[in-house]
Write a protein that binds this DNA or RNA. Sequence first.
DNA 1: CCATACGATTACATCGATGTAAATGGCGGT
DNA 2: ACCGCCATTTACATCGATGTAATCGTATGG
Lengths: 372, 372
Amino acid sequence: MPFGGCDGPLSSARWGCAPRVRVAIRTTTDSEKGSMGRPRIKDVAQYAGVSAKTVSNVLNDYEHVSERTRTAVREAIDTLGYRVNIAGRQLRRGRTGMIALAVPDLDVAYFAELARHVMAETERRGSTTLLVETGGRREKELAALHGFDAQFTDGVILSPLALEPADLADRDTRLPLVLLGECNLPGSADHVAIDNVTAAREATGHLLARGRRRIAVIGGDLRGSRNTSRLRTVGHQEALAAAGVALRQELVLPVPAFRWADGAAAARTLMRLPERPDAMLCLNDHLALGAVRALHEDGWSVPGDLDVTGFDDIEATRYSIPTITTVAPDKRGIARRAVELLLDRIDADGPGGPAVDETAGHRLIVRESSGG
Amino acid sequence: MPFGGCDGPLSSARWGCAPRVRVAIRTTTDSEKGSMGRPRIKDVAQYAGVSAKTVSNVLNDYEHVSERTRTAVREAIDTLGYRVNIAGRQLRRGRTGMIALAVPDLDVAYFAELARHVMAETERRGSTTLLVETGGRREKELAALHGFDAQFTDGVILSPLALEPADLADRDTRLPLVLLGECNLPGSADHVAIDNVTAAREATGHLLARGRRRIAVIGGDLRGSRNTSRLRTVGHQEALAAAGVALRQELVLPVPAFRWADGAAAARTLMRLPERPDAMLCLNDHLALGAVRALHEDGWSVPGDLDVTGFDDIEATRYSIPTITTVAPDKRGIARRAVELLLDRIDADGPGGPAVDETAGHRLIVRESSGG
DNA sequence: CCATACGATTACATCGATGTAAATGGCGGT
DNA sequence: ACCGCCATTTACATCGATGTAATCGTATGG
């Protein structure tokens, strides 16, 4: 049943979603232990003069319930202020109706936006999303992978940062899992991501087309464990190669995290090089915003002196000064597909088919920071 | 028990938090229905040669369990890959160990940051946070108020926008509730917020001290239902009055939402007035960032032509161009206190004491957008 | 008027973990 | 040897909802 919704399509049609609240009137003389005196299905049954199972049938829109009974039960529910106890239902059904979404960091707007889409999609499909932050720490990602040491959720959508291939190899495959973003973990679980190599190639291509030749990559890294960095750096280098532009190793600069401060620090480092860059391909928007700010403080003009581009198309890039050229992933599509894949696996209730690898769309949005 | 943690202090000390995963080996010949063949407490008991209750005792760190037994049970748990079934525990205990945090919009960075703090705090205290977006819609806020039509959570922390006093009056008081932010709903539930009137007075005072006299309020509203707007507008007017500056009604401009686009639109509206403002007190940072952007596009300089200030101190205000003067609420303190109040109510397991009204700290951070 | 069918309803067992109270067993004291 | 004490362990009932299968009752066909 939908969390935050009502109990079943019929009842939700009948009552709407704003519950009328009346303090429950316990008519039974049962002891008041248990759930703080909340009425149980049995109380409703007694009040309505039917069996508990009939109440259950009404709740679950079982078809063979007479209109009279249905009405009586609903009145009882309404009067007593009854709500189903999820624990009981879940125990019986073996499903929680909840999935977990584990992302590294909600402060990173991309993940907040993605989370909204995932929550909207799961709600639409009658499930509930439990949002968890991993901080990009491996231990937390592992916990997510395994359902958090408790059978809390029916499945997990995980956007990993620190996870290693071996971690996925010996995971408990009974828990449905969908991975988001970049993983070098083929075949082990369903996976949804944009084509990062192509996206980075396009962004670099755009900068090259504007005549930039010394393009730095903030967040770039070919050897690190962060796959986003690797794939996007590869795309960058492919574009350089295709244009016959030499790669300068010193312009590819890894960062500890993908946040404003890291972008600002990286930009300053790069501008101290003997041969300064004339563009900065930042691997996410926060890095780009941080870089732009640092450049501004040091008296450089964007896009006058340098071009800057980002990734993710967070809302801030449309209002910053200058606005930021960025690669916009189809967040809605990613969320929708991820939820779809996960719920399908859950419904399949078994190993299901082989792992699916899906590519979501993206597009380059040129804005002021690279002359748009 | 902590979600995302381990089972109880002892076991978590014993095993650490990164679960070693082995595919469970079911030694019993029980039918494989139920939770997808996961081992139950009974299976562990059988494997370890003890009763189910003893396993439960080990799980819950009951003191009178011999070391031998404890070890045997733990080995069994480890071998079988057992995890407690929350549904069963919850049904028996009548608690879920989860609380809900309902905020209007995760895209609004303040709420994302607040959510992180709340999640960190609940995790520290052994609970789990279920994060829900209300979109500021009354029906969703009501749902949160009532525990989402299902006994999903032990309590709710709600940051309301659209809620009306009457909604709180007849709520089901069995569900512990803490309100965040501004509410004109005294006494009905615990409540944590900063002193908005004072904060706004300080911000306006700062602008007045800089010689600004025509100070617009973006998001301001004395009659609307949004309490944040009302209280901050009151503070603004108090400051004007104290300084003997006349209030211009046309400079107080309500907005439909507190996002970049609304700030941008409002700024444009204000600059079309016959007598233009010389400062804009924006009631959150997104409005301020949007206003700054719009002013920039139309050729106005901040802080040259106008000062702009915000509220909330989201991270973006430290990296925007210009950086934004803002009122920084003690988010950490708000989160900590809210969680504390809620968990106390939950532990009290009854009506508890009268509703508490707590004021969190805040401070004005002067940055470039008002000459800092 | 009886047999049949089927819609409506119900009794009962069950999901997994844990509180209660009672049983078990070892040990020291008399 | 008997008793009582206490640490340890266990049997059993229970939390609330629902699947199963059985029952009840009424309409229909022969």
